[in-house]
Simulated assay, not measured.
Amino acid sequence: MKKLFYFSFILFSQFIIGQVSGNVNYQNQYAANTTIDIGFPSSEGIVATVKGLANVKADTYTAIFSTTQTGKTTKEVNDLLDQRIERSLNEIKLKKGVEIFVDMISFVPVYEYEVEKKIFSRKTYNEVPVGFELKKNIHIKFSDPNQLNDFISILSNHEIYDLVRVDYFSNSLETIKKEMMNKAKLLIQEKIKNYELLLGETFTNVEKRITDGFVVNLPVEMYKSYEAYNSSSLNLKKSADVNQANKSTTLYYQPIFGKEFDFIINSSVLEPVIQVQYEVKIFINREKEKKQVAKTDKEFILITPNGDLKNLNINTPKQIH
């Protein structure tokens, strides 16, 4: 009886561990770095680098819904679409802190093919206008992400279903960037001091070059897709007809992992966020000292016939290595 219980526990434990990884691993979406691969510095010098990541929660959002209306006349098309949009927006405007903008996209005629029958020749298909198609986009700005479900419910009641995208905005990006630069400055100074201690040298008077930059990733750019299914394999003849079922495609938010960064601001991510990356690099040329310019202390003054005094710059700067 004890052996049976132990065997069952092992199976259950493996099932739990498999669920923690998630179904996304059916298609091997993750490529883990299991070893550290560090390039050796060049003979001329070394590079000190610091990378930072900040997860910034959005302050406001803009959802874009697409609407389409067709009809036989321009008046019919305009009236039908305006009625749908107006009824929807009257309900949405009752929500707190909401701004709305309607964007005109296109207004084009719609054509169909008309068959021209001839007795002694082939059929001829002619395009003829049969109506008009009108497209408009509804932009909704809001600050509470929970309101998006309310907007979808209201718009769907008026046959508006196409949610094109949701954009994220933050008023604190400039403050976050300054904070990241300050953190990176302290860390890279610490790295350079550590290199000096390890090498028993000082880099005070050697040549240095610096570069840095930011990358901002929005949630709309960070979604991936996968299909999770397990199909059976059949040993069939080539002539066999196989009807495969349509597989459901899933979208999920995939943020940038924080494992490659020296520091992270707001490391825990629950909802989709704006992610800001910052990197600074300093190249230290250990073989080359800074160029210094020395000048003589002598000054020469020219007295003009009018009695004016002018300084003559006849000193030649010398470079000291």
Rank of each mutant, 00 (worst) to 15 (best):
M1P: 01
F5R: 10
Y6W: 08
I10C: 13
L11E: 05
F12A: 15
F12N: 04
I17P: 02
G18D: 04
Q19Y: 09
G22W: 04
N23Q: 12
V24L: 11
Q27K: 08
N28K: 13
N28F: 08
Q29V: 14
A31N: 11
N33P: 00
D37Y: 02
D37P: 00
D37H: 06
P41L: 06
P41V: 05
S42E: 14
I46H: 05
A48M: 05
G52R: 03
G52E: 03
A58S: 15
T62P: 00
F65T: 01
S66I: 02
T70H: 01
T70C: 01
T73S: 15
T73E: 12
T74S: 12
T74R: 15
N78T: 10
L81F: 06
R87Y: 11
L89P: 09
L94M: 05
K95D: 07
G97Q: 08
V98S: 08
F101Y: 14
F101L: 13
F101A: 14
F101M: 12
D103G: 01
M104F: 11
I105R: 13
I105P: 01
S106Q: 10
S106A: 15
F107T: 11
F107W: 11
F107R: 12
P109K: 03
Y111G: 04
Y111N: 03
Y111Q: 05
K118M: 11
I119E: 14
R122M: 09
R122T: 12
K123G: 09
G131L: 06
E133G: 05
I138V: 10
I138P: 04
H139F: 14
F142D: 14
D150P: 00
I152R: 07
E159I: 05
E159Q: 10
Y161P: 06
D162F: 04
V164C: 01
V164F: 00
R165F: 02
V166W: 03
D167R: 09
Y168P: 08
F169L: 06
F169N: 09
N171G: 05
S172Q: 09
L173K: 03
K178F: 04
K185F: 08
L186H: 03
I188W: 00
I188K: 03
Q189H: 10
Q189I: 09
Q189R: 13
E190Q: 13
E190D: 15
I192P: 06
K193D: 13
N194S: 15
Y195I: 13
L197H: 03
F203L: 04
V206N: 11
R209K: 11
T211S: 13
V215S: 15
V216N: 11
N217H: 13
V220K: 10
K224A: 09
E227V: 09
Y229C: 04
N235R: 07
A240N: 11
N243L: 10
N243S: 12
A245Y: 04
N246W: 02
N246H: 05
T249R: 11
T250P: 00
Y253I: 10
Q254C: 10
K259P: 00
F261K: 02
I265L: 15
S267C: 00
I274L: 09
I274D: 05
I274Q: 04
Q275T: 03
V276H: 06
Y278P: 07
K281P: 00
E287H: 06
E287L: 15
A294S: 13
T296H: 06
K298M: 02
K298G: 00
L302H: 02
I303V: 12
G307C: 05
L309K: 01
K310S: 00
N313F: 08
N313W: 02
T316M: 15
K318W: 02
I320K: 12
H321P: 01
